[in-house]
């Protein structure tokens, strides 16, 4: 799986390199686009000193951790949400006659290496936030764990959104509400949202485990909504559970395609 992915990703990278100017523009544009997201936070904090009780460095940290995870997952698996196009165009049939996993082939198809620009920007942002926060080493171990869990959670969301499209080929955009919506939701401290919404993204769709619960641990803060403190250590568990659900859903989708032809 990994080998196939790497081979195909390299092929697409070479294809992209055929238009060097466009490649450079897109990479820089990606860097700048994500820079504008940071500018939004800057504009907010030009008007206030705290958002829902969190300062600018803390919001930057939560945002950086979530969006770094999202951009990595998007770089690697974002194209899975184009599956309905492959179904309609018949290219899924081409993937199915090759001796490789259709998931890997769909994920890597049209692999766009210039999305690395965004990943780099988010990493820089997370680094800046951390340098201003001064997290004690005793709690810093959680940072790589939360980013890795976040990548798995977003990747699983992309796979789920792909699986859903086996049913909803006419309206793939519905899935965007969950993938890009999830990224949007986790940009800010979750306590800005209603308590019910937060409970929903804690116990149903585990977005709170991307950056909020582990982030509270890193920041050494009480949960403003008073959920059990144990939750902040459960990100890897939540990520694996969601990944398992996504794998099952994807397999069901492929089985459905091969047994219904649609």
């Amino acid at each position: 799986m990994v080998r196939t992915y790497a081979l195909l990703a390299w092929a697409w990278t070479r294809a992209a390199a055929q238009y060097p100017l466009s490649f450079a523009v897109m990479t820089v544009a990606g860097f700048v686009t994500s820079g504008l997201d940071a500018a939004v936070i800057w504009v907010i904090f030009a008007n206030t000193r705290s958002l829902a009780g969190f300062g600018v460095a803390e919001v930057m940290f939560l945002y950086g951790a979530s969006s770094l995870a999202f951009t990595v997952a998007d770089l690697l698996f974002g194209n899975v949400d184009r599956i309905s196009r492959h179904i309609r165009a018949g290219t899924l049939d081409v993937f199915l006659i090759r001796p490789a996993s259709p998931f890997v082939q769909v994920a890597v198809d049209q692999f766009v290496p210039h999305r690395v620009g965004r990943v780099v920007q988010r990493a820089v942002m997370l680094g800046l936030a951390l340098s201003r926060l001064g997290v004690p080493p005793g709690r810093a171990w959680m940072i790589p764990v939360m980013v890795a869990s976040g990548i798995v959670i977003f990747a699983a969301l992309f796979a789920l959104s792909g699986a859903v499209q086996f049913l909803l080929t006419g309206a793939p955009e519905v899935a965007n509400a969950f993938t890009y919506g999830g990224a949007q939701l986790t940009q800010y401290p979750l306590n800005v949202y209603g308590a019910d919404l937060v409970r929903g993204v804690t116990y149903v769709l585990p977005l709170a485990f991307v950056n909020w619960q582990p982030g509270l641990y890193v920041l050494g803060r009480e949960d403003p909504l008073g959920l059990p403190p144990l939750l902040r250590f459960l990100s890897p568990v939540a990520a694996l559970a969601l990944a398992g659900a996504a794998a099952l859903a994807w397999r069901a989708g492929i089985r459905r395609y091969r047994s219904t032809g649609s």
């Binding site: 907010i44 958002l51 829902a52 909803l168 006419g170 309206a171 793939p172 955009e173 519905v174 965007n176 509400a177 890009y180 919506g181 949007q184 939701l185 800010y188 800005v192 949202y193 209603g194 919404l197």
Partner: peptide, 22 residues
């Protein structure tokens, strides 16, 4: 696609509204 877009716009509307409210 338009209905799906409306759904997505609504979800994002709710999320952004909370941030603006804060």
């Amino acid at each position: 696609a338009a209905v799906a877009g409306a759904f997505t716009n609504t979800v994002f509307g709710v999320l952004r509204a909370y941030v603006l409210i804060a």
